[in-house]
Structures are given as structure tokens and as C-alpha cells.
Design a protein around this nucleic acid. Structure first.
Length: 443
RNA sequence: GACCCUAUCGUCCAGUGGCCUAGGACACUCCCCUUUCACGGGAGUAACACGGGUUCGAAUCCCGUUAGGGUCGCCA
């Protein structure tokens, strides 16, 4: 445990939280939690045009959904605030004056530039190792601008100042910043401050290797929330991009990941994002969820679909038998809607298959009679009745299954048939079968 | 273009000189289970980018080539 360790996630409010950013936040968070340090959230909103409350909220919501709580930052405060760069003008001004006084700055076209030290800068990266950058040639490494003519600040400068002011000990960020690091190191040196340790983690690209942008599938965290992923599954998947516990395990709970996580196990190769695997992990996490938690996750989607279910607990028996089918919670209304209304519709293709043979209606008629006279309705008694009827008709039980399923649910697939009939109840099962028979007799 | 990083199955991740005729997972194919679909179980297809070294021995070390990614902004 090292309470001295302080890491930060410093997103700019662009209006969405990118999976790459979420993974960076996750690694920072894991590092802090593993070592008992502090995880700081800082909003880099120096670009006033993009700085809206909604854009910030998307990031906060996304991080909270993933379970990445911050020890200092927006809405929670802390001793090193404010945590919005737009509110730290005075601090930047102070540091600016320091650099100005020490002769590191010069004006150029109204903007202020930092005069490079023109040295070989060594970046000793925790993940990438020791890398030398030769900044001696002004042609290839022009002096960086740190302040615009309108007085606003540039990323490199405020980023470094904030890391100093906030006591950041470890900067864990995307590899896209590796080439920026020598510039940042120059700033630390000019300011007379000790730089933090750096760890540049590999990037996340699309499955085909192209750069991932907002529009690409799986790029936005909001998309996962809306699709009904469990936060644990996405967090699990993201943790495995560029890192692994080294023992071939894949399905990891948060606590295990915190225990196992270490920067030394982070690899250097960019990862290609595979939504299929992420989906698979979701099914794994979904099945491990207690039923109450599963219900909570599904509830918003069920409400949104307008399903009249009464009390939330009333959903449980249905959820219990369909949950093994569900890959995403957004699918849940389609799996359960017919349990809660008599106004269900028949899938045309399923109906065509189920009622293709003329003998089907006769068989179903016999089945209705059998079902109607079952003394104590249950999955087992329904099954016995169906098998008995099939035997009497000289048919295989299988031949009655699809017609029955389509009749009572309108769908070709669903939970196991007999438990489903039990929940539906004897009366509704019989009524639905009768209704299906008359409907399809006409057709 | 310059500089930096990377290079194991389609994808993610093991592998850090001999245990590798390269292992696990997703996806895919097939089989089994089964009341459809799914789940579950089993099997299979599939990779060390290429060329040079170093070494008794290389996926592992070195060099080059190629490919991919990143940075070079008065974006972050």
C-alpha cells in the first residue's frame, strides 16, 4: 500500500466517453486501488467552445456506470481543486510568470512560445522502457506554443502545471502521448519540478486496425449503457486489452482485477477491439448476476417498452426462465412481452412453419382438450399431458412443440416450453391455443 | 517527410534461449446433450510478418526490410 501514489484521468469534454478513454481511466483507477493511492479526475476544458455541462456529465456518468469512483474531482471536491481547468486561470498565470521571469518564453505573433532546451530528453517509461528523444533540431522540433493570443492556454502547459499542482506521481495515459512526453519533461525541468513517472499504454483500434472514432461500433460508452451491457462485463473486457493476469483467466471480477493489476503486466501492442468477445463476456457476467440485480438491470428497458407488469417482483418468475437467453438487457422486452399481454402478435415466418401441416390444427385441438383437463397445472403435468396426447395421436412430442410455442407466444424461440406454460397458467395457455387454432384455421 | 512505438491463430491474451511438433479465450465448423432456439460438454480449422545474424539451441537476443500505429497544432 502506498498512500503517496496519486494518478489522474484527465479527459476533455468532447460530448462522449470513448472506450479508449474509459480504458485509460480504468487502468489509472486500478493502479490507484491496487496500491491504495488516490484517483483524481480532472476536466481539461480549456477549449471553451466544447465546454458544456452536458459534455462533462456524459463523462461523469460513464465513469460512474463503470464503477470508477474518483477520490478527488468534480462533484466530490478535494484539496487540490478546482478540478476544471477553466477555473484554474490564476494558477496558470502564476506558472506562466515563473517561466517568463526565468526567460523560457518569448512572444510570437501574439502567442507565447516555450523556448526548447534543445537537449536529448530521456523518457523512462514504465511500460515502454527507456526512450531517447533528440530535441536539438528546431526544424524538426519547433518550440511549442503554450498560450494563445487571446490569453487562453494550451494543453501541454496546463497539463504539466496541473500535474505539478495536484501532486500527480504517475501519469498513465494513451500511447498517443508518448511523443509529447519529452516536451512535458522540458516544462517540468524549466519549472524546477520533479516529473511524475510515466506509463504509456497501448491504444485501442478498430478490429480492422483503423483508428476508432465516435461513429465506430463500440466506441462510445453511452452505447453500452443503452444496449444493456453490465458494467462489470465491459470493465472486464477493457481490462484485458493490453493487460492480462498472465494465467489465461479471462472472466474476472472487479476485486480480483484490483488485486492482480500491475503496470508491469501491461503490454505494448495496440489492441484491436472485438465486440463479439465483449458480448460473450456480457453473457458470462449476466448469468452470474443474482436475480434481483438482473431485474434491476432490465427494469429500465422493460419500462421503456411499456410492458405492464405491476410490481417489479412480479417479473421475477419470467425473468428467471428467460435470462439464460438474454445477451443484452435491451433485448429483454422482446423475450418477455407476451407474458404480460394477450395482445401478442404472431411472427409470420414462425407461424408459417408451425402451421404448415394441416394436421397441426387437429393435433392442437386434441392438445387443448388434454390441457384443459389437467387437474393440477404445472410444468411437469403440462409436459405429461403433451406427451400423452402425442402418443395417442401417433405423433412425436417434438411435432407438437413448435406449434404450441408459437401459439402461446407468437415466437419461434423462447425459454423452455413447459416452465413457460406453467407461468402462463392453465387458463391462458388453453385460451391462447384456442385463439391460435381459430386464427390459423381461417388462414 | 522526420522522429517514436509495435509485430504469435481473423481478434484478445500466454510465451521472456531448450518444457513449443507454440497454450487459453472469442468467432467459425462438426459432434453430443436436449422439447425448438439458446445454454452446457467434446472435437476441429487457424499464428511465431520476411531476410540476415548471435548461439550447441531462437517465437524469445541483435541488425535490416516490410507492414501497422502514434507524434510533429495558436486540439486535447
Amino acid at each position: 500500500m502506498n498512500p503517496e501514489i496519486r494518478v489522474r484521468f484527465a479527459p476533455s469534454p468532447t460530448g462522449y466517453l470513448h472506450v479508449g478513454g474509459a480504458r485509460t481511466a480504468l487502468f489509472n483507477w486500478l493502479y490507484a486501488r491496487h496500491h491504495g493511492g488516490k484517483f483524481v479526475l480532472r476536466i481539461e476544458d480549456t477549449d471553451k467552445a466544447r465546454n458544456t455541462q452536458e459534455a462533462v456529465q456524459v463523462i461523469l456518468d460513464g465513469l460512474r456506470w463503470l464503477g470508477l469512483d474518483w477520490d478527488e474531482g468534480p462533484e466530490v471536491g478535494g484539496a487540490h481543486g478546482p478540478y476544471f481547468q477553466s477555473q484554474r486561470e490564476d494558477i496558470y498565470e502564476t506558472y506562466f510568470q515563473k517561466l517568463l521571469a526565468s526567460g523560457h518564453l518569448y512572444e510570437d505573433g501574439g502567442a507565447w512560445r516555450f523556448r526548447s532546451l534543445r537537449e536529448i530528453v530521456v523518457v523512462d517509461d514504465i511500460v515502454c522502457g527507456r526512450i531517447e528523444f533528440d530535441l536539438s533540431n528546431p526544424e524538426t522540433h519547433p518550440d511549442m506554443t503554450i498560450r494563445r493570443p487571446d490569453g487562453s492556454w494550451i494543453f501541454h502547459f496546463v497539463n504539466v502545471v496541473d500535474d505539478i499542482e495536484m501532486g500527480i506521481t504517475h501519469v498513465i495515459r494513451g500511447e498517443d502521448h508518448l511523443s509529447n512526453t519529452p516536451k512535458h519533461l522540458e516544462l517540468f525541468k524549466a519549472l524546477g519540478c520533479q516529473p511524475p513517472s510515466y506509463a504509456h499504454i497501448p491504444l485501442i483500434l478498430n478490429k480492422d486496425g483503423s483508428k476508432m472514432s465516435k461513429r465506430d461500433a463500440g466506441a462510445s460508452i453511452t452505447g453500452y449503457i443503452e444496449a444493456g451491457y453490465t458494467p462489470g462485463a465491459l470493465r472486464n473486457y477493457l481490462s484485458l486489452l493490453g493487460w492480462s493476469p498472465k494465467d489465461n483467466r479471462e472472466l474476472l471480477e472487479l476485486e480480483e482485477t484490483v488485486n492482480l493489476f500491475d503496470l508491469s503486466k501491461v503490454n505494448r501492442k495496440n489492441a484491436h477491439f472485438d465486440l463479439d468477445k465483449c458480448l460473450w463476456l456480457n453473457t458470462q457476467h449476466l448469468t452470474k448476476l443474482p436475480l434481483e440485480r438482473f431485474r434491476e438491470m432490465c427494469l429500465p428497458f422493460i419500462k421503456k417498452a411499456g410492458i405492464a407488469f405491476g410490481q417489479p417482483e412480479a417479473l421475477d418468475p419470467v425473468l428467471a426462465i428467460v435470462r439464460e437467453k438474454v445477451k443484452l438487457c435491451s433485448e429483454i422486452p422482446a423475450w418477455i412481452s407476451y407474458f404480460f399481454t394477450e395482445d401478442y402478435t404472431f411472427d409470420p415466418e414462425a407461424a408459417r412453419k408451425a402451421f404448415a401441416s394441416p394436421v397441426v390444427l387437429e393435433r392442437l385441438t386434441a392438445l387443448v382438450a388434454a390441457f384443459d383437463s389437467v387437474p393440477e397445472w404445472s410444468a411437469a403435468s403440462a409436459e405429461a399431458a403433451l406427451k400423452h396426447t402425442a402418443a395417442e395421436l401417433g405423433a412425436k412430442p417434438n411435432e407438437l412443440l413448435l406449434p404450441t410455442r408459437v401459439s402461446v407466444s407468437g415466437r419461434p424461440s423462447g425459454p423452455n416450453l413447459f416452465p413457460m406454460l406453467e407461468i402462463l397458467g392453465q387458463k391462458r395457455t388453453v385460451a391462447r391455443l384456442r385463439n391460435a387454432i381459430t386464427t390459423h384455421a381461417q388462414a
